Amino acid sequence: MSAFDSAARAASYTGGQMLRAATRMIAARPATKPLHPRGSVVQGTLHRFGTQGLTGAGWLDRSGEDLALVRQSRAIGLPPPVPDIHGLAIRVPTEGGRHGDLLFASTGLGRLTRFTLTAARSPLRRPLTTLLPYRTPVGAVLLSAVFRDQSRVELAWAIRSGVWHPFADLSLHTDPSDEADIPVSFDPVRNVLPGLEPYDWVRRLREPSYATARQSRQP
């Protein structure tokens, strides 16, 4: 094992334990979800343009149209117009009756800010990214989501801190502000899209907090 792999393993374990501790503290409050406790769920149409094999990740490179389930939420659950970290969750059907989940949080799009959580009054004012990369044949790929208006979101990919490449448009069927929340749990560690495989260190980083969140929702 290289020095880099050893450092990544240690950092992911420590980070995972910190996230689990933070989730456990927030889970003590009376809410169905410890993070992103309230939100709105709508259906949307995801139109993928196709990227002609640029990434080697099948779902990114192939064109197609999917009926998606979309949830918007505020991470801490602070009431508007108080700034909060905004979340966007997208569930897309895959072969065999399964589905893949993508989770985005409000950040920036710069070389460093794409990895930094940022609070805002509205998701329309800030871009969102997956924060953590996916393993693909061309390397570590990050995804972003930018609201062009209240009903249209542009999705893009970038290799590490490189240039963003739009690959899809998401059209929301109804205004999320008019819709209620429904009990649905998104998990990008368990539910992956073709070609977007989480790194092992990402699994180690995320799984403890997700396990704690799942336990907090059990009766």
Rank of each mutant, 00 (worst) to 15 (best):
M1R: 14
F4H: 12
A11L: 05
T14G: 07
G15V: 02
G15F: 00
G16W: 00
Q17I: 15
L19V: 14
R20A: 15
R20W: 15
A28K: 09
R29N: 06
T32E: 12
K33D: 00
P34Q: 13
R38D: 09
G39I: 02
S40E: 11
V42H: 00
G44S: 10
L46I: 14
R48G: 00
F49A: 12
G50V: 01
L60A: 00
R62L: 11
S63C: 12
G64A: 01
D66A: 01
L67H: 15
G77S: 03
L78V: 04
P79T: 06
P80Q: 05
H86C: 07
G87M: 10
G87W: 01
L88A: 07
T94N: 11
G97S: 11
D101L: 04
F104H: 11
L109Y: 08
T118Y: 02
A120P: 01
R121F: 08
R125D: 09
P127Y: 04
T130L: 02
L132S: 13
Y134D: 07
T136I: 08
T136A: 12
G139T: 12
A140L: 13
S144Q: 10
S144Y: 08
A145M: 06
F147T: 01
R148N: 07
D149A: 10
V153E: 01
A156R: 14
W157H: 13
W157G: 05
R160P: 09
G162E: 11
H165A: 09
D169M: 13
S177Y: 06
D178T: 15
A180I: 07
P183L: 02
P183F: 04
P183S: 02
V184H: 07
F186P: 05
N191H: 12
N191M: 05
L196F: 14
L196W: 04
D200I: 10
V202Q: 04
V202D: 01
L205V: 13
E207W: 06
P208H: 07
P208A: 08
P208F: 05
P208L: 06
Y210T: 05
R214V: 07
R214W: 06
Q218Y: 06
